[in-house]
Design a protein around this nucleic acid. Sequence first.
DNA 1: TCAAAAGTGTTCTACTTACACCCATGC
DNA 2: GCATGGGTGTAAGTAGAACACTTTTGA
Lengths: 228, 228
Amino acid sequence: MSVSVTVDLVILTVRDDELQVLVVERGNPPFEGQLALPGGYLRGRETLDEAAVRELHEETGVDGIRLHLEQLRTYSDPARDPRGRVITAAYLALGPDLPTPVAGTDAREAYWVPVKTAMQDGALAFDHVQILRDGVERARSKLEYTTIAMMFCTEPFTVGDLRRVYEVIWGMPLDPSNFRRKITRADGSLEPTGDRRVHTTGRPAALYRRGAASLLMPPFLRTHEYAS
Amino acid sequence: MSVSVTVDLVILTVRDDELQVLVVERGNPPFEGQLALPGGYLRGRETLDEAAVRELHEETGVDGIRLHLEQLRTYSDPARDPRGRVITAAYLALGPDLPTPVAGTDAREAYWVPVKTAMQDGALAFDHVQILRDGVERARSKLEYTTIAMMFCTEPFTVGDLRRVYEVIWGMPLDPSNFRRKITRADGSLEPTGDRRVHTTGRPAALYRRGAASLLMPPFLRTHEYAS
DNA sequence: TCAAAAGTGTTCTACTTACACCCATGC
DNA sequence: GCATGGGTGTAAGTAGAACACTTTTGA
């Protein structure tokens, strides 16, 4: 059967010591006036990945910044869109604290909101709360065994910057000494620039860039509950 | 835009000490006569998950057996299907050594073939080799931190059965003593039945059922290469 | 008695954790 | 000086790797 296909984006960043997501205010029915994840229709000769990149640039207005972008999953409940049969391929994008999104690219206002707020039942249109929850969960678990946390940092960054990303996304404090050892020991993850950043307070911190490694080895396991 | 949507299945099992995948011989163009992953069109009022379950039952003929089924990802290259714009949501299914598939449910012959063979360039129609590779990779990495390996075992099973699954899928021998300690230590993963299985040779092995836990804690990490 | 697979024990090493303590800067 | 974050050191505990060794069966 023939269906409409859209791409929706879960764009996450860390702002003000909080994990935030980019949402837009819908300008048309259905759900007019409500908040939703940015997204749009798949076009004729493009892949879903290409559509996601296009939407990402349209919504954030950024071009040069290196973002992480990956397919999350496809949502297909026949009742998810009142207009008819529309399935959506959701993408997860992670980036550093981006410039406040330029409103109006798509005649829609865009805002950063804390995921804590946006994940509440009914906060977003369609099934976007579910999509957001899945995206946040993916991000949380990927911090354990990949280096994607660095995608939330503007280069160059310090070990402290990176630790704050983990603390915000996992919602737990981490021991600074042990964190630094783990992350610096993981081969190929961090590349020292040789410079240091002078803080308003405290000892200057060494600066790093993202290294070539995309997997954290050994992984950085959260202390999950050891139960079902 | 309006596109056709299909569901394709990567159905894996362990047979004859090999990881094998279910493939069908195509009865119609395009790629008539070639091997492909089983699949079919999404219908009017069903979700992708429902379509995947339906196809799975049609192809394997099994009904009662508990299988693991999860969405893999959606493939959308505009050129992936010569008939036109068709995107496909791929699913990964894992099961115990199933009865040889009943041919003819869909007027197509179905076969188990080793993934080693089916993953070769050109072995399958469409982009199915890529889909299969992604499915196998997903299965390999999920063995590390989940209990899905048990889905390849017919209950009740022994620790040795389970170890053989890991060895076949990872393609490496594992130390039997250490394997048993890890897997039995993981709380809630294995549930002893109290019985033992008498082998043709060797000491009888304790029998287990799948426990409630779906995550392996602590995880069972392969010794990856510690490089990018 | 021997082969084979199940299962236990032990040693060595590596990583995690917790926490003490020193360093370098702004105020 | 002192507060503040950066960074090093270290001892205790835990998990993994390697492998010796015992157990229980069929042949």
